[in-house]
């Protein structure tokens, strides 16, 4: 069972996917300088009505093993400690402990 922060992040990811096209349409209108200011303003107000977990910025790549939010290596999706554990166990192909 993933921890609460991971569950929240999963919720945000699904929210982003469900609302992405509508948000993009409003963004297009709101940022379009060739349209009238009133229309753009209304589009911006509509953008503001979207709930929190529909914004792509609320999504954070957390550790897929432990759920830790900091020190996550994007290449492996693991935090530094889980990365070390897995690498030492030999579960990460091409990763070995350096020694010289």
């Amino acid at each position: 069972m993933p921890n609460a922060r991971v569950l929240r992040d999963i919720k945000a990811r699904h929210g982003v996917r469900a609302n992405e096209i509508a948000r993009r349409a409003y963004l297009y209108v709101a940022r379009n300088e060739t349209l009238s200011p009133q229309v753009r303003h209304h589009a911006q107000l509509q953008l503001n009505t979207f709930e929190r977990y529909t914004r792509p910025t609320t999504v954070k790549n957390r550790c897929i093993e432990s759920g830790r939010g900091r020190g996550v290596m994007s290449e492996f999706g693991l935090c530094r400690f889980q990365f070390r554990l897995k690498a030492l166990r030999g579960e990460l192909p091409g990763v070995s402990k350096a020694s010289w």
């Binding site: 991971v6 996917r17 897929i64």
Partner: peptide, 9 residues
């Protein structure tokens, strides 16, 4: 970006 976001975990 949504479709690839959902498959992260």
């Amino acid at each position: 970006r949504g479709p690839s976001m959902v498959g992260y975990y």
